[in-house]
């Protein structure tokens, strides 16, 4: 493998990991703050991709589709928190698993009714449509590079909000000790609602961003859900920094696994997970 191919693969792995981080950080935040496990997280990733395909084909603009799909996902998150998730806080995990499984079935069927089950592709915005010629045979799409940059900026924004703002302080305090935070007069119901809606929006955002580089298909949420789980298990639940490490590890393992060990690439990430479980059962950055 020459250096250019290696660099391209490295970039692919990092880009994959960054998207994975966006989706998984939503999952880990929702669990960290609300204490609710959401199996429907992948379904919102899928929904984000379908919404952006639909809106892009109606409006003809990727930017409008981006904003529209994100807004719909966020509002949907607020509505679901209000109607269902609020009542799940403090219930046992089994009930949460069943609720989110029910939601997946409903979302899948609604997607079927609204958008059908066809496989689609979304065109990237025209000004990001080209590709950069690396060598005579190799080129790299501009959109993929832009995707990396957008993901990095978003990841930075997530860390900034969590570490430097008052909102982030409340969120971190809530993850640390919910009862104490409530006793201090923090309006937790509001925080819960926006964290859940934000988590859903992050899942949808992942779907919206990858729509132009991969295909939009009904089962895309399932694969993403499992990968997000592996990321959270690797990084430690509730830890956004852990999710970043886990996501990059998986992105690189998967990309280079496909290059070097194509036969067993699909189980490599699980081997990685098994290794981490043996070494640190609570995840790399998880609390003991």
């Amino acid at each position: 493998m020459d250096i250019v191919t290696f660099a391209v693969q490295l970039l692919n792995g990092v880009q994959y990991g960054l998207v994975l981080f966006l989706v998984a950080s939503g999952l880990t935040l929702v669990f960290g703050i609300l204490g609710v496990i959401n199996l429907a997280h992948g379904a919102f990733y899928m929904l984000g991709a379908y919404l952006s395909w639909y809106l892009a084909s109606v409006t003809g603009s990727f930017a409008l589709a981006f904003v529209g799909a994100l807004a719909i996902a966020f509002l949907l998150g607020i509505a679901l928190e209000e109607v269902f998730v609020k009542r799940m806080i403090g219930r046992d995990h089994l009930a949460q698993v069943l609720l989110s499984f029910g939601l997946i079935l409903v979302i899948d069927e609604l997607r079927q009714i609204l958008f059908g089950k066809d496989v689609h592709s979304v065109a990237p915005p025209a000004w990001l449509g080209g590709s950069i010629q690396l060598t005579e045979v190799l080129s790299y799409p501009v959109y993929r590079l832009a995707l990396c940059v957008v993901c990095l900026v978003l990841a930075g924004a997530i860390f900034y909000v969590l570490q430097k703002t008052r909102l982030g302080m409340v969120v971190r305090a809530g993850a640390e000790n919910r009862d104490m935070t409530r006793a201090l007069g923090i309006p937790f119901d509001l925080v819960n609602r926006y964290v859940f809606a934000g988590g859903i929006a992050l899942a949808a955002l992942g779907g919206i961003l990858v729509a132009p580089v991969s295909t939009v298909f009904p089962g895309m949420g399932d694969g993403m859900l499992i990968l997000s789980f592996v990321v959270v298990v690797l990084g430690g639940i509730g830890s956004v920094a852990g999710a970043a490490i886990g996501a990059l590890l998986i992105g690189l393992t998967d990309t280079f696994g496909k290059v070097f060990f194509p036969q067993i690439s699909s189980i490599l990430i699980y081997v990685l997970m098994a290794g981490v479980l043996l070494w640190r059962p609570n995840g790399l950055l998880g609390k003991a």
């Binding site: 789980f229 959270v232 639940i237 699980y270 997970m273 609570n282």
Partner: peptide
């Protein structure tokens, strides 16, 4: 042996992931 090193919600996620590993296999 691997999953039972974890508790609660971790156990759910780890068993789900290993189950999917067999699926993808």
């Amino acid at each position: 042996v691997l999953s039972l090193r974890t508790r609660g919600v971790y156990f759910i996620m780890v068993t789900l992931a290993f189950g999917e590993m067999l699926f993808y296999l």
